[in-house]
Each structure stands twice: as C-alpha cells, then as structure tokens.
C-alpha cells in the first residue's frame, strides 16, 4: 500500500506529511515508557523483521498480491508508539533506498500505515483481549483479529486521502469498494503472519511482549485490590 508520487495532489500530501511529522514527534516521547534495555533491541528487531517480510508478496486474488503491513505485529510486540516509529523507519528506507513508495507521498503512507493501522490495531487488540481469558493464546488471537482489521482500515484511510486530493476523478465509492474488498483478503494473510510471529516471540521470550506484559500487570493490580 505504498503510495507512488502523483496519486494525491501536493497540498493534501503536505498536510498529511505535517500530521505524520507531529505523530512521529509524539511517538518519540511516548515510546520512552515502553522501551528499556531489553525491549529497545526487540523494537529494532521488529522493524527489521517487518522490512524483510514486506518483501514477501503473497498472491491474494487473480493477478493481485499483498504483503505484511506489520502494524498489529509491532503494536502487540512493542506498543503503539514504538510501532509507529518502527513502521515509519521501514517506509522511509523503502522510499529512499528501494524507490518503493513516492517521497512526496511519504506522509500519506506514514499516516495510513504507521498511524491509522497502528492505533486501529491497538484498539482492537485491547478490546478482543478484554473479552478473552487471560492467557498467552488470547494475546495471539487478539493480535490476529487486530491484524485482519488493520489492513482494510489503512486502505480506507488511503481512500480518505483520495477523496480529499486525488489527481484523478474516478468515483470515491468505487475506489472505496475495491480498496477495502482487496485489503480484507490481504488482511487474512496479515493475520496468519502476525499470529505466527507473535506466537513465536511469546513462546521464546514472553517477558518482552508489550501486549502480554500489560496483561500481567493488570492482573497484579486486580489481585492487589
């Protein structure tokens, strides 16, 4: 879902770049609370893994492919602020080194994938975790549900940008239907990869997992009260 230069006009791109820059500044502050000597390297590894897996396009429907976005994965592993930073670094390097995604469109892509997909993931993750029993598999399941929804959410966010400032005149409703439809399919692949990766980290180093640690501390608070 890396937006090339030209899809969206310059004023709209600039406005979203400003929003993205603000969100990154907030995340730099916010990430401090979730990153310590042990979890900061995990955040670096998360960004690295997301870069690698984003190269692995999988087929979804006739003539279409998709790849991991990684927002739900990063959010569950390192928390939403560090997740925003991780995905932003990946997008920045992809645009600068690999010509993947336009530079003028970078703010648009950061907004969709590092902000909308991350915070939608976080909200859904917390919601699903709340209604499930307090186990590791619930964390994995909640990450999967967050992953499925995060991808069409990012796609819908692109359609918002298209509606505001597209350099084309095709109807917004047809773009919305096609984008969300296609990205629900990609979201299923997203969920499979997310469940596998979160499961693997929980199995080896559950103490590092943001979405699991929070669960433990809320349990402690409850038992103390």
């Amino acid at each position: 879902m890396h937006i090339p230069d030209g899809f969206i006009d310059i004023p709209t791109s600039a406005a979203f770049a400003a929003i993205a820059a603000g969100a990154v500044a907030v995340s730099l502050k916010g990430a401090k609370s979730s990153l310590d000597d042990k979890t900061a390297p995990l955040a670096g590894l998360t960004a690295t893994f997301i870069f690698a897996v984003q190269m692995l396009n999988f087929p979804v429907a006739a003539g279409t492919s998709g790849h991991l976005l990684g927002a739900a994965l990063a959010t569950v592993l390192v928390g939403p602020y560090a997740a925003t930073l991780a995905i932003t670094i990946v997008l920045l390097l992809q645009a600068l080194l690999f010509a993947d995604g336009g530079l003028s469109a970078l703010g648009l892509s950061v907004f969709n994938m590092s902000i909308v997909a991350v915070w939608v993931s976080y909200a859904i993750f917390l919601l699903v975790k709340k209604i499930l029993p307090k186990t590791k598999s619930s964390v994995t399941a909640a990450a999967g549900v967050a992953a499925v929804i995060s991808v069409p959410a990012a796609a819908a966010s692109f359609v918002l940008q298209y509606a505001i400032g597209a350099n084309a005149t095709f109807s917004v409703s047809s773009v919305l239907a096609a984008m969300v439809g296609t990205h629900i399919l990609i979201g299923i692949g997203e969920a499979l990869i997310t469940v596998f990766a979160v499961g693997a980290v929980l199995a080896s180093r559950s103490d590092l997992v943001y979405g699991y640690k929070n669960q433990k501390s809320s349990l402690e608070i409850r038992s103390a009260a």
């Binding site: 990153l35 960004a47 690295t48 870069f51 930073l85 670094i89 390097l93």
Partner: peptide, 17 residues
C-alpha cells in the same frame, strides 16, 4: 535492506529508551 533497517532502527530505539 535488513542490515540498514536493523542498524538504523535499533540505534534509534536505543537512543529513545
């Protein structure tokens, strides 16, 4: 790409932590 992402992101997160 993996090495660049690894170095830059880990460096940033270590600074921010």
């Amino acid at each position: 790409g993996v090495i660049a992402t690894g170095v830059i992101s880990t460096g940033l997160f270590m600074l921010v932590r």
